[in-house]
């Protein structure tokens, strides 16, 4: 039987208040316990569990679970060292590691059917990327003073081209604030929409009769491939976010 009403594929991103706080004097709606809050706590407990329960009781030889932690540590370490380099990279390693782990875990949790995608929430993710951008800019200004603006003039530019190039560079620099977050959010958002639309279509097709059920197995394989692709995107987007954060930090720390 077909659904009599069509549910929007965007319903999966809807936030609901699970536990509200009201007060006649102050507005506590920002502290409401919502779906979003629930998933932040799930992410927190997943991270805690991954780090506390896999240590093999603190033995020198780690457990098999701990290999994943070591692999992530080595990967992010290599990436930050390669991207930022110099003497200062170590101070930013925990920051980049935190972003990677947070996006990695929240993306993978969102791949569980009927769950909720934290990183598809544009407002939060774009705010996060803007904060990173703002922090990087402040680091650059305090570290280099006015010399920081030499970042907008690439080396070896002919003098007549300088105003134009500065304009373009400035624009691209400001665009970073939005583009970093938008890249992640839109990837996750489009992936989840694609999955739910294709999955809904396939469900309707396969639930019609036995023949369509057997026939529907063929696009089912394609859907499975898309699910695998979405898992890959989840991981790759976390990696891309970290690598871009490191490269922005490198720009403001060493100015090209």
């Amino acid at each position: 039987m077909l659904n009599l009403f069509i549910t929007s594929p965007l319903d999966q991103f809807e936030i609901r208040v699970l536990m509200g706080f009201t007060s006649p004097l102050l507005d506590f709606s920002s502290l409401n316990f919502t779906t979003f809050s629930l998933y932040t706590i799930i992410v927190l407990f997943t991270v805690l569990g991954l780090n506390l329960l896999t240590t093999n009781n603190n033995k020198i030889i780690g457990s098999k679970w701990f290999v994943s932690q070591e692999a992530i540590y080595d990967t992010i370490l290599n990436m930050v060292k390669g991207q930022i380099g110099g003497k200062l990279w170590g101070y930013y390693f925990p920051l980049v590691y935190t972003f990677f782990f947070f996006i990695f875990v929240s993306n993978l949790i969102s791949m569980i059917p009927y769950s909720f995608a934290l990183s598809a929430h544009l407002i939060f993710i774009v705010s996060l990327s803007s904060v990173i951008w703002l922090g990087a800019t402040i680091i650059g200004l305090t570290k280099h003073g006015l010399v920081f603006f030499s970042l907008f003039v690439p080396g070896g530019t002919p003098l007549p081209l300088v105003p134009l190039l500065v304009l373009i560079e400035l624009l691209s620099y400001f665009a970073r604030a939005i583009s970093l977050g938008l890249r992640l959010s839109s990837n996750v958002l489009s992936g989840h929409l694609l999955l739910i639309i294709l999955g809904g279509l396939l469900f309707n097709l396969m639930s019609m009769s036995i023949i369509t059920f057997v026939f529907g197995l063929i696009p089912g394989v394609g859907l499975l491939a898309i699910v695998v692709l979405e898992f890959a995107i989840s991981v790759i987007q976390a990696y891309v976010w970290s690598i871009l954060t490191s490269s922005y930090l490198k720009d403001v720390l060493y100015l090209h």
């Binding site: 920002s30 809050s37 932040t40 935190t98 934290l118 407002i123």
Partner: peptide, 27 residues
């Protein structure tokens, strides 16, 4: 549904709290 202004502050409060807690835990 992500763009309902009623939840903006709520998202930011919980989201940044999570990122801060994670940063402290990791570092």
């Amino acid at each position: 549904p992500q763009l309902v202004p009623f939840y903006f502050l709520n998202q930011l409060v919980y989201g940044f709290a999570l990122v801060t807690i994670l940063l402290v835990l990791f570092a």
